[in-house]
């Protein structure tokens, strides 16, 4: 009882302090309340629910069977294909995105190019899901515009080369559509952070351009490069609508398998679905944590 009494007495003893603090504190917190509510309802609670579900059988008893079922060959292969596609699209996105970003930041291209690329990247990096899937079907599908144009104008049959939009590489290329712009968006500020004076200082100290890149620019950039690649990985690992819209269930990747478990067709096993999702959370989580660690490191340097 003593603590609250003291606390109550304080405002009369020192009126100036609580008076100044009271009005600002709650208002500032009020602003972030929607965020916390949102995070709680759509992130935290579902995650907890999902984790709990992964350790239960359909009758609600504790079990490790769902996790054991993850080791089934078709599930392992689904994870594996997902990881491969995500890695391929992340590496491809990182490579081409880095080249694009470097081209607009470092070299004397016309001034309008950079804002144009940035605006396009902002839009394209958010273009995913069913619209993207259909856009690619309409261009690179068996009857897609580009496919048809190639064969009628150049006599080149894309599909005879073994290419198929409904395949591993088809999906990877489709993902690249948002992966490359995302890399551009994230890497451009990092490249801007390379100060002109670093290069000049290294030159006056006798370094060649190659030595500058090897000893300064690249070490400064690599946390951003690697971190962003991990972010791209997580980004495509979690993509479901694009994959589903594009390949239906022909390609056995985790998100589609998961979708099948939850949707309730023949494979329906909700708790196995939770376990699948848990596995994805772990993988995505790990790559995100690594991303954050690397990012903090590079930001510390670039202060």
């Amino acid at each position: 009882m003593e603590q609250p009494l003291e606390a109550l007495a304080l405002p009369t003893a020192q009126p100036s302090r609580p008076l100044r603090r009271l009005p600002t504190m709650p208002l500032a917190w009020l602003g972030v309340v929607p965020f916390f509510v949102f995070a709680l309802m759509f992130l935290l609670l579902p995650t907890l629910f999902l984790i709990a579900g992964a350790f239960q059988d359909p009758d609600g008893h504790f079990t490790l069977q769902n996790l054991r079922d993850l080791l089934a060959p078709n599930i392992i292969s689904a994870y594996w294909i997902s990881i491969e596609i995500s890695a391929a699209s992340a590496l491809g996105g990182a490579f081409f995105g880095a080249l694009l970003a470097a081209a607009v930041v470092l070299n004397g291209l016309p001034g309008w190019l950079r804002p144009t690329l940035m605006t396009f990247s902002g839009v394209a990096s958010n273009f995913a899901g069913l619209p993207l899937a259909f856009a690619f079907l309409a261009t690179l599908g068996r009857m897609g515009l580009v496919t048809v144009l190639l064969s009628s104008l150049l006599g080149f049959n894309l599909y005879r080369t073994g290419f198929n939009i409904l395949s591993f590489w088809g999906l990877t290329i489709t993902y690249l559509y948002f992966q490359i712009p995302l890399m551009v968006l994230i890497l451009t500020p990092a490249l801007d952070g390379l100060k002109k004076e670093w290069r000049e200082a290294s030159q006056t100290l006798g370094a060649t351009p190659w030595q500058y890149w090897r000893m300064i620019a690249f070490p400064v950039l690599w946390p951003s490069l690697l971190g962003t690649t991990l972010l791209l990985f997580a980004n495509s690992f979690g993509a479901v609508a694009t994959a589903y819209g594009l390949t239906g269930s022909t390609l056995n990747i985790v998100t589609i398998l998961l979708y099948a478990q939850i949707r309730g067709d023949v494979l329906h096993n909700q708790n196995l679905g939770y376990a699948l999702a848990l596995g994805m959370i772990v993988i995505t989580g790990l790559s995100n944590v690594a991303y954050i660690v690397l990012r903090t490191r590079s930001e510390r340097w670039l202060k």
Partner: peptide, 18 residues
């Protein structure tokens, strides 16, 4: 510049951050 044997000090220090 890398052949000239000059030392340069910049307003922004320009130390290599890494």
């Amino acid at each position: 510049p890398n052949q000239r044997k000059v030392g340069m000090v910049f307003q922004s220090y320009a130390l290599f951050p890494n």
